[in-house]
């Protein structure tokens, strides 16, 4: 434990957001039987882990961590994920999309645009069913995307894992209706009210480590649909596409096949905060091919049970 805070302090928006999120985490563990926290090694779930420390230390986390591994993640993110879990001395479960493919639960896409992003939904729902988890805590935020703006902090999923945006439970004050029937589950989003800038300011304020791909670095990339994709061995290119070295950083850490980099020179968290504060493009608009698949691409994936 570090030094005491000043007794009466200006309540910053970060402390307000932190307090709300900690309250949500504690409500979940107090009212669900088998919660699980989704940890990908990305910035939002890194913040979730710090909030879990704030909610439950000096005790261990009252839930395991779960990562849905597409097998096509950035190696830097996986390496970071394992190191962070070891530092925290918590338990990590990994559900792999490759296993879902091997078991015939999903069929792998083929061709140069193949991505395992959509397949993750099946792996996630199978992992929730297999672990008999009744609440999955995730790092999604309402500012990320249009349909997410309608999402509840505690969001109900039926026994098919489906989200029905038209018949959501009203969420009043800080009173969460956590009652579900067997086979149903809840998705819980403690960062609902955070923005991308809040997340980075919090990472800065808390001095949290993030995977190196968030900082500007040089790597082999190719341009597709106006986005800079990381080139890895075996990636099929379309006619006219070429691989070149460029200085990029990642605003989101998703699957390599659908996450684009941005040209940047930011090498510290403080520089990233400045960059985000000045940006004129949204995080998902700049970097996520999965949301460009149609006007309501995220809504459709969320209805099917996506994160």
């Amino acid at each position: 434990m570090s030094s005491a805070l000043p007794a009466t302090t200006r309540l910053t928006h970060l402390r307000w957001l932190e307090s709300e999120s900690v309250h949500v985490l504690r409500e979940v563990v107090a009212t669900f039987e088998r919660p699980v926290l989704l940890f990908s090694g990305g910035k939002d779930s890194i913040v979730l882990l710090r909030l879990a420390e704030k909610a439950f230390r000096p005790a261990r986390f009252p839930f395991p961590l779960l990562h849905i591994d597409t097998g096509q993640n950035f190696v830097e993110a996986i390496e970071f994920r394992d190191r962070r879990v070891a530092e925290l001395d918590e338990r990590l479960l990994v559900a792999s999309v490759q296993d879902s493919i091997d078991q015939g639960r999903v069929v792998e896409e083929t061709g140069p645009r193949a991505s395992r992003n959509r397949l993750q939904t099946t792996t996630l729902l199978d992992a929730i069913a297999e672990g008999r988890f009744d609440a999955a805590i995730g790092g999604a935020r309402r500012d990320e995307e249009r349909s997410r703006a309608k999402e509840r902090i505690l969001s109900f999923r039926d026994d098919f894992g489906q989200w029905d945006p038209k018949s959501q439970r009203p969420e009043l004050w800080n009173l969460y209706n956590t009652q579900i029937h067997r086979g149903e589950h809840a998705r819980v989003f403690p960062l609902s009210n955070w923005t991308e800038l809040d997340v980075w300011e919090y990472i800065d304020a808390e001095d949290l480590e993030v995977p190196t791909i968030y900082f500007a670095h040089t790597r082999d990339v190719f341009v597709r649909d106006g986005m800079l994709y990381a080139y890895s061995e075996g990636q099929q290119l379309l006619p006219g596409e070429t691989v070149a070295r460029d200085t990029v950083r990642y605003r989101t850490v998703g699957d390599m096949t659908c996450t684009g980099g941005v040209r940047s020179t930011a090498t510290t968290v403080a520089q990233i905060v400045d960059e985000i504060a000045a940006t004129r493009i949204t995080e998902r608009g700049e970097t996520r091919a999965d949301d460009r698949a149609g006007e309501a691409a995220m809504e459709d994936r969320k209805r099917a049970g996506y994160f």
Partner: peptide, 10 residues
Amino acid sequence: TYDGGLEEAV
């Protein structure tokens, strides 16, 4: 709190 003890909390 995770960040240390408080004399006053609001």
